[in-house]
Amino acid sequence: MTMKTIAIIGAGPAGMEASGSLARLGYHVVLIEKEATVGGHLKNLFQLFPDRRPGKEILTHLVQTIKHPGIQIKVNSEVSEVQKLDNSFALKINEETMNADAVLVTTGFDLYDATEKEEYGYGIYPNVITSADLEQMFHNGKVVTEEGKTPKRVAFIHCVGSRDEKAGNNYCSKVCCVTAVKQAIEIKELLPETEVFCYYMDIRMFGPYYEELYREAQEKWGVMFIRGKLSEASQNMDGSILMKAEDTLAGKPLRMNTDLMVLMAGMVPSASSKKVAQQFKMEEGQNRFFKSADNHYRYNESQQMGVFIAGACVAPMNITDTIANARAAAVKIDEYLKN
């Protein structure tokens, strides 16, 4: 019997984990990544919630996983053409053509483009940043304002581009609440004198130990939570940001100045997902993420025979779920190829 080949598109946590599982099951895996390095968004994460484990640790583990003779890694590569054959797909990658018996799409997510919410001032006022920008600051070990000063106050804005019909995203991105709480604690650790506020609509602590992290933020670190959505922000003369929201629990409009305003930009289906969807004629769900063949039993199968999906290209997902989801997909692919 000849060895069967699986093409995996996207070498983020989902793609990497699935590659390892499938290779260990005895398949030949071609892992295709458009960027120069593997790891996807995980590369940008300084620490993971809820246990504050360095993102690098998981990345190292995943890199170990894909060091397997059965895995061929193609970085700086993109699928340019797809042809459906009887029981397989012919893929054109970097002018080479390969044959894949099954395809796993792990194209992940893009961050919501926060400049689209113009009233929040991202891209206009330098002291309005996104959670991804802040993560980068943590990497650099220094959180400062545009003017180079230590912020006396930092405000996190939940649900930017998520649960927002105006942004076209009605879904919840799931991870932003707990990320905000994690980042709030990180700020307090780094800058104990800094006041930290979280502006939320609902706090959604869906995972194990998330609620505990929320409690820790209140109890141990004195992070303050204000229930209200930011309506608009403007810049003061000194570069600080004036925020307008309603303190809905007080029932009054609230104004607050902050030195740094962090927008918790949500997840949107990635540009690569869109491209792949066209190439493989895959269906999108109402939320524009990939549509599963069945939401319970065939979660990792797309509507297209032989094309599987895993990770944040299916729905917003944290790292833990992404890894578990990738392994589930591997099992499904194994079953598919054995029949």
Partner: peptide, 9 residues
């Protein structure tokens, strides 16, 4: 225009 601050600025 207050909701499109780029224009205002």
């Amino acid at each position: 225009t207050h909701l499109t601050p780029t224009i205002k600025n």
